[in-house]
């Protein structure tokens, strides 16, 4: 699950969050999310619309969603959740409740996932 914590001092952070949710409405959140990571820092409005074309989205609908900030309430809610949880850094990733802060090496995430799977497996066997 992805929650949004757009950084207020980065020009395109907020509109990029809007873009990912506009793409979600058309069934392509993951595709847009990965594209945004890949193409960062080119996340201005024109670039985002270009990515929508690339993903063969309904571009007029996508553009309208961006321009009207259709998902403002949802993003604001995520921001409040982040504040309530004391989050101050992106990315902050929770794996089965284990909190990992910052852009960490992939091996770190693998180790936590493997550990949690192992623990869950052991718990299952003990039931």
């Amino acid at each position: 699950m992805v929650k949004h914590l757009p950084y207020r001092h980065r020009d395109d952070s907020r509109i990029a969050a809007e873009a990912s949710l506009a793409a979600r409405d058309q069934g392509k959140f993951r595709e847009m999310h990965l594209l945004l990571l890949d193409r960062s820092p080119k996340l201005d409005r024109a670039s985002l619309i270009g990515y929508a074309k690339e993903l063969e989205l309904d571009v007029p609908r996508f553009t309208k969603d961006l321009d009207t900030m259709r998902h403002k309430t949802e993003i604001d809610r995520d921001l409040m959740l982040g504040e309530a949880l004391g989050l101050y850094n992106t990315p902050t990733i929770f794996i089965n409740g284990v909190k990992l802060l910052g852009d960490r090496p992939i091996e770190e995430y693998r180790a936590v996932i493997d550990g949690e799977l192992k623990a869950a497996g052991a718990a299952g066997k003990n039931r």
């Binding site: 001092h9 850094n89 992106t90 910052g102």
Partner: peptide, 21 residues
């Protein structure tokens, strides 16, 4: 200490590598 404006691209603060948790 927690202000990301202290880093060049706004991704890090002192607390990123010195996490209270």
């Amino acid at each position: 200490f927690f202000d990301r404006r202290l880093s060049g691209d706004g991704t890090m603060s002192c607390a990123t590598c010195h996490n209270p948790e």
